[in-house]
Each structure stands twice: as structure tokens, then as C-alpha cells.
Simulated scan of single mutants.
Amino acid sequence: MTYVIAEPCIDVTDRSCIEECPVDCIYEGSRMLYIQPDECVDCGACEPVCPVEAIFYEDDVPDAWSHFTRINVEFFDELGAPGGAARVGVVGHDHPEVAAAPPSA
């Protein structure tokens, strides 16, 4: 199991969660942040600091955003598990479904 970042993060990317993550497993795309499921240690440090309440334990993702569990996994299909977001920096792209989402207000 892992934590998942869902739709409220699109176009927000506050980065508070990145600062709290002890294992550096939260990566930055162009429009939202993603948690690398193989690197996440399920500590939950990121969840309470998210200002838009976009982070959920995998079993607790609301039904309306359940597809974000898959989106977070698929974002890393090409990137893999680099072992830390700091060394990667901004990835510069998003999952196709996030990229196609209308801009957040």
C-alpha cells in the first residue's frame, strides 16, 4: 500500500508535502505532484500538510478520484524508481489524463 495524490493537486503543486516526506518519494510533474509507490514507506507525513487535502492512503481515496491510484503508478512507467525526487528535479510532463484535465480555477 501507498499514499496517492489526487485531483485537488492539479495546478496547485504547493510542495509542502515534499518538505515533509522523509524518503523523498514525491515527484513533481508539470501540473501536479506524484508519489512513487515503490519508494513510499507509508509514513503519512505528507497527508496532514497538504493545503488542498489531495493526499490519501490508497484504501481511502474517494471513489470519484480512485483512478488517481492508477495515475500515480503509471506516471512512473518510464521514470521507474529513481531513488529520490531531489536528484530528478521537475519531471516536466504529466500523466496524459492530468495533462488533458481542464485548468483548475
Rank of each mutant, 00 (worst) to 15 (best):
G92Y: 11
A101G: 03
I35C: 09
V98G: 11
P103S: 10
A81L: 06
C40G: 05
C40L: 03
P22Y: 04
V73Q: 14
E19Y: 11
G89H: 10
F68K: 02
V98K: 04
Y34V: 03
A86S: 15
E7V: 01
A101Q: 13
V41L: 14
S104D: 10
A85Y: 00
C21E: 02
E78S: 00
R31T: 00
V41G: 05
G44A: 03
E20V: 03
V98H: 02
V12M: 06
P37T: 08
T69G: 04
D14H: 12
H95N: 02
D42K: 14
C43L: 08
I5Q: 05
A85Q: 10
P51G: 00
Y57S: 15
V73G: 03
A100E: 12
Y57I: 07
E47H: 13
G29T: 00
P82I: 02
Y3K: 03
C25R: 02
C50D: 04
V52P: 02
F56V: 05
T13N: 11
Y34E: 00
D38M: 12
V88R: 07
G80C: 05
C46Y: 06
A101R: 14
D77F: 08
C17G: 13
G89L: 07
V88L: 12
V98M: 09
S16I: 01
L33H: 14
S66T: 09
G83H: 04
I35T: 07
D24G: 12
D11N: 12
A45D: 15
C50N: 06
C43Q: 01
D11W: 05
C9E: 08
D59P: 08
D59Q: 12
E47N: 03
G80Q: 04
I35Y: 02
C9H: 01
E20S: 12
V61E: 05
G84H: 02
V12K: 05
I18V: 15
H93N: 12
G92K: 07
E53Q: 13
H95C: 03
V88S: 07
C46T: 12
A85L: 04
P103Q: 10
A81S: 15
V90D: 13
R31N: 00
I35P: 11
D77Q: 08
E97M: 08
D59K: 14
D42V: 13
A54R: 01
G83E: 09
A54E: 07
C17D: 05
C50W: 01
P22S: 07
Q36D: 11
I18R: 15
D63W: 04
P8F: 06
A105P: 15
V23F: 11
I71Q: 01
V23I: 13
E39F: 01
G80Y: 07
R15C: 13
G92A: 07
D11H: 04
D60F: 08
E47V: 15
T2D: 12
Y34M: 08
D59G: 08
P102Q: 05
P22N: 03
V61L: 09
G29Q: 00
C43T: 07
I71T: 09
T13I: 12
